[in-house]
Design a protein around this nucleic acid. Structure first.
Lengths: 213, 213
DNA sequence: AATGCATGTTACTTGCGGTAACGGCAGTCT
DNA sequence: AGACTGCCGTTACCGCAAGTAACATGCATT
């Protein structure tokens, strides 16, 4: 039949696609986000046009690659977020999961956070939504969890979304800085961030005369 | 004298440099961060090699360009941060200043947040510190203000730095998302973020059974 | 056998970053 | 005056990466 044919071919194509993605993964992990299509093709043992047939353009390949890692990271984050524990503990677990991930595989992390990368696919200069898709997805995910679980009164949905993206951004920026300078242990970072979210900024006393920040 | 000569030439060169930067600014504002050196040179009424003589490479030009805008933005942020008002008000003023800036000139904003941009100057794949310099500088600046003004007990310096980068990241991510979707007014966004920093996350009640997020 | 189709190739075009190599045009030193 | 030094500017080129024909081949179906 036609359908069985298609599924056969589909499977084969999907397998090939996965192989290609794994090759691309190796190269990107080695050479960074500026890995060339030629290099990726060579790693896969083939030549460029095949890559283009499978993924359209460089952006397509990178998007596919990013989706794999993003999905994986989001899964582990969801696990930390859904664990049966009290709020503070969960927040810390989630922060720690994220930080552990970027610590363990910084190259993947850098790749994921680097969307545009000069790929000519993103012209049109669409301001806004220029952030890495990973950030957006994490923000939305967190917003949903917040809105589901917390009683925030009126306007809760909007508030939850602001918080979701805000907290994710906080985590990301702090993590990025931390990864570059390593000024403290992961556990300390987690604690500091959780403290910030727990309102210690508002509770802190002024240092001397005048209104503190 | 020799010195006067030098200053003469220096002045001329500096003027030229400024003119070139302004031309580059116009092009980047029009074409986005992927503006080509050719286009910039054309806008300035000259050809490529001159740009390279002045700025070394594309990264140099972009760095110079970014520095101008970054300095300007940081100045206005400092003003908001140093205003004589109480803490919450200052936080809101600072958030609002930042958001107003990115709202008024989104193209500049996007350019500033897009460091690598495929420029071959950034290879070497230095994970960490890959963030836009603007983010780093804002984080450090804020950290300094926090550490100066707040009494955070032991380990205050480190805590202040974590918070500085974290808060800046929160502001950035939320701003980016907001700029893309415009889900609410700027004032609402400011309020929501300030509420987050003021510990409303910790204070919120659970929605139903089980420990909330 | 003939058709269709995915897989693979080589060889090309286009466009950009970056770089020689050369040409004039001040002012300066002897 | 005439050679010297710097700077501004050009044209023409190199290298490299993205992306695209156009052609070749193996394998299924009809």
């Amino acid at each position: 039949m036609d359908t069985t044919q298609r599924t056969e071919q589909q499977r084969s194509a999907d397998r090939r696609r996965r192989e290609l993605l794994e090759a691309a993964d190796r190269v990107v992990l080695r050479d960074g986000p500026q890995a060339s299509m030629n290099a990726i093709a060579a790693e896969a043992g083939i030549t460029k046009p095949i890559l283009y047939r499978h993924f359209g353009d460089k952006g397509g390949l990178y998007a596919a690659l990013a989706k794999r890692h993003t999905d994986a990271l989001l899964d582990s984050l969801r696990a930390a977020l859904d664990a049966p524990a009290e709020r503070r503990e969960r927040v810390e677990a989630t922060l720690d999961t994220y930080l552990a991930a970027i610590e363990a595989r910084p190259q993947v992390y850098r790749f994921l956070m680097h969307p545009a990368e000069g790929s000519p696919g993103d012209q049109g200069f669409d301001v806004g939504k220029h952030s890495a898709p990973l950030l957006r997805r994490m923000g939305e995910e967190l917003a949903q969890v917040i809105e589901e679980r917390l009683d925030l009164g009126p306007g809760s949905q909007q508030l939850a979304r602001v918080w979701g993206h805000g907290i994710v951004g906080m985590m990301h920026a702090a993590g990025d800085w931390w990864l570059g300078e390593r000024p403290c242990s992961r556990a300390e970072l987690v604690r500091s961030l959780a403290d910030l979210l727990w309102g210690r900024l508002a509770a802190a006393g002024d240092r001397m005369g005048g209104p503190g920040f």
